[in-house]
Write a protein that binds this DNA or RNA. Sequence first.
DNA 1: CTGTATATTCTGTCTGTACTGAACTAAACG
DNA 2: CGTTTAGTTCAGTACAGACAGAATATACAG
Lengths: 174, 174
Amino acid sequence: MAELTGLQTQYILHWGEMGTRWGINRTVAQIHALLYLSPRALPAEEIAETLSVARSNVSTSIRELETWGIVRAVHVLGDRREHYESMKDVWEMFRLVIEQRKRREIDPTREVLRRCLAELDAKEPGADYTRERLEAMAGFFEAVTELYDQMKRLPTGTVRKLLRMGTKVRKKAG
Amino acid sequence: MAELTGLQTQYILHWGEMGTRWGINRTVAQIHALLYLSPRALPAEEIAETLSVARSNVSTSIRELETWGIVRAVHVLGDRREHYESMKDVWEMFRLVIEQRKRREIDPTREVLRRCLAELDAKEPGADYTRERLEAMAGFFEAVTELYDQMKRLPTGTVRKLLRMGTKVRKKAG
DNA sequence: CTGTATATTCTGTCTGTACTGAACTAAACG
DNA sequence: CGTTTAGTTCAGTACAGACAGAATATACAG
């Protein structure tokens, strides 16, 4: 990964772009893209040079990727620098990311909805209507959580297979 | 909705908070939350007052919600102002939002991946490895698209039923 | 028409986040 | 140990997006 090919650059830039739309820091996303494409683990210094970002920026970004569990540090004999590599199993990567986003975005919302419903006083104005709306929303979040839990139980690869099956069935029927 | 109850305020603030995490403008999310809870359509002026934001801010935010198709303007006899109301079917709302996010985030990525794979020159350094990685990623995006298309075909309500069935099965088995 | 109410567009300001470069810490080498 | 190298933390800067308020446009009433 000393020099990027045009193709690699294109992918990395796009990934960074998409990252921002998903609320993921551009540099974090770019670093992930770089490591994902790299056949070998890269030291921070090299990442910084390749992407033209500050060394400190790489440090914090790598840390974030590590907390997500999709990047880890490995060591190379005769080199005391840390080398970073990305997980290569795409499905597992997204599973990890989704799990954490769920924790930060779905779970707190479920909590709030539950608390709201618990606190809802029948005497306050329009309580019936409010309850109806909150319950509908809460039901949705419960269902999503349920769906997520069910998918989590399936061993890796099964989702893929199910999906392929579904495709075939649909094609036959269509 | 002249005055918000504590509960409504809580919900609206939380929704705004979550919106920012999903890359949705806080005001847009808050307005949506307000309209969702409101038993009647509200004029822009009232929205601005209730949420303490500028009238102009409401105008642009409403526009965004309208393009998503989850808020629409309705008219009230004897009042020439536009009144805005939110869709109340939570499942349909999220379906609309997801559809559009898919268009903006999944589809372009699929395109880039396809183009990258098409352009990939076997002569460039590490072409085999790059191809492998790009294909894995592309496969994931194709699968997600497939999944989405299949779910889209199901009539509203079916997803809910399927989910409930799944829950029962799992409970029995567990 | 003119005046008033409503809605939109535009411009400058503000805020929050990303990022750099420097200072600092820790570890490895000789 | 001192020196070098890697890694982290911090303080200030830069930038993007959100927002308010003013200016403008549109529509309706009298």
